[in-house]
């Protein structure tokens, strides 16, 4: 918990504050600087499924709409990833309702590159199997696995984004890894 407080107390990120756009035209520079990081977070949190590009754009749209609330005490990319966590949670809730009411969809297959189709296909299959196992986890474990294990964010970063203690992140990551490993290595 004290580590989480330490994150909150760190000095303002001057570069990040400077990057917060004041109008739609300034948005481009912020998008260029942080879009890839946000896209990776969104992809990990959605287990490679869903309208990821839409969600990434939504993260920036929300960040723009709430730019007054960014006080600069947190790094800008951490703030953006925090928004991404909330939007993906909301997306998954909505998607769950939609699936019940309107449609059912399975996990999407990762694209296969043309350079080495055989190994790429194998990697794609492995990745798909991993995401399927992660998808089956409860939300807190899935989010922790995506951020801590796949994205390899620090414990402090994960705790900040998920709004839980560092201890919880550590415990959840271990449990999530154990479950995913068991699911993949089951005979």
């Amino acid at each position: 918990m004290s580590e989480v407080r330490a994150v909150a107390k760190q000095p303002p990120d001057a570069d990040a504050v400077g990057l917060v756009p004041t109008g739609p035209a300034d948005m481009r520079s912020m998008f260029d600087a942080h879009a890839v990081v946000v896209a990776r977070t969104v992809r990990a949190l959605t287990c490679g499924q869903g309208p990821q590009e839409d969600l990434v754009q939504e993260v920036f749209a929300v960040a723009f709409a709430r730019r007054d609330r960014f006080d600069g005490t947190r790094p800008l990319d951490a703030w953006l990833r925090g928004i991404a966590v909330n939007l993906v949670r909301s997306f998954r809730r909505r998607e769950g309702r939609r699936k019940r009411l309107w449609r059912r969809s399975g996990p999407t297959r990762a694209p296969v590159t043309a350079d080495n189709p055989e190994s790429a296909l194998e990697a794609s299959e492995l990745e798909r199997a991993l995401w399927t196992a992660v998808e089956a986890l409860p939300d807190p474990l899935r989010e922790t696995f995506a951020l801590r294990v796949v994205e390899q964010r620090s414990l402090k970063d994960c705790a900040d984004m998920l709004g839980v203690s560092v201890k919880s992140v550590s415990r959840r990551a271990i449990e999530a890894e154990r479950r995913v490993r068991a699911a993949l290595e089951a005979p």
Partner: peptide, 12 residues
């Protein structure tokens, strides 16, 4: 494989 795929992600 998942980490590599994440690292190769293009900018949206």
């Amino acid at each position: 494989a998942a980490r590599m795929s994440q690292a190769e992600l293009d900018r949206p």
